[in-house]
């Protein structure tokens, strides 16, 4: 990444990526904790939840990539991230009644667990996954540095993932309930969304 439209804005995008990476895994860990009382802790249930998140990320990367090419502006990404944050904010309030309803209608087995984890996590995880393709598009100056830009974005968000994955069970779950953990990460996501909107970063490759 060569110098250009402000290194500080570049750093800001990467830092937001780090925070969103942590929030994504933190929300997943808390959601798994919320679902365990309903579906149990059989390994098949874990597999369903992890598969749901992977599926959401896959969709998010793909759709986010298309959206990023169409409107390569940080405030557009910010809007999506904000929506994800609001969804996560609402999640603790509708999770219990929704899981009750799904159990009553779909049973307790793996397909039901897949459906339930999709209902809880698909939308926010997909929207959060818009970040990576958007960030690449926003930070890219020329094809020569494409590899480095993509590499930075993926490594910083993955370090965030690691922090969220370890931090939620090792630190947060000792002192906070799943609901409070979820709400805390929702706060982080909303703040990141607002920051992206305020920053109003344009794609550097498109600069005249």
């Amino acid at each position: 990444m060569s110098a250009g439209v402000g290194r500080s804005r570049q750093a800001a995008i990467l830092f937001i990526g780090f925070l969103l990476g942590a929030a994504l895994m933190g929300v997943e860990m808390a959601a798994i904790r919320m679902m365990t009382p309903y579906f149990g802790s059989a390994i098949e249930i874990w597999a369903c939840m992890i598969a749901t998140v992977m599926l959401s990320m896959m969709s998010g990367y793909y759709i986010g990539g298309m959206a990023a090419d169409r409107a390569p502006r940080s405030e557009v990404l910010g809007g999506f991230v904000l929506a994800a944050g609001l969804f996560v904010l609402a999640l603790p309030f509708f999770a219990a009644p929704m899981l009750d309803w799904m159990l009553a209608n779909f049973g307790y087995d793996a397909p039901a667990a897949l459906a339930a984890s999709a209902a809880l996590l698909f939308v926010p995880m997909m929207l959060l996954s818009f970040f990576s393709p958007f960030a690449v598009r926003l930070l890219l100056t020329d094809a020569k540095h494409g590899g480095r830009v993509a590499g930075s974005v993926y490594s910083i968000t993955t370090i965030g993932n690691v922090l969220g994955t370890l931090g939620a069970p090792l630190v947060l779950m000792r002192v906070l309930g799943s609901r409070d953990i979820m709400l805390s990460f929702a706060g982080v996501i909303v703040a990141c969304g607002l920051a992206l909107i305020i920053l109003r970063i344009r794609a550097r490759a498109d600069a005249p």
Partner: peptide
């Protein structure tokens, strides 16, 4: 062979 909580709930 089942999760105890799921079994009891059902």
């Amino acid at each position: 062979t089942a999760d105890g909580r799921v079994y009891m709930a059902r």
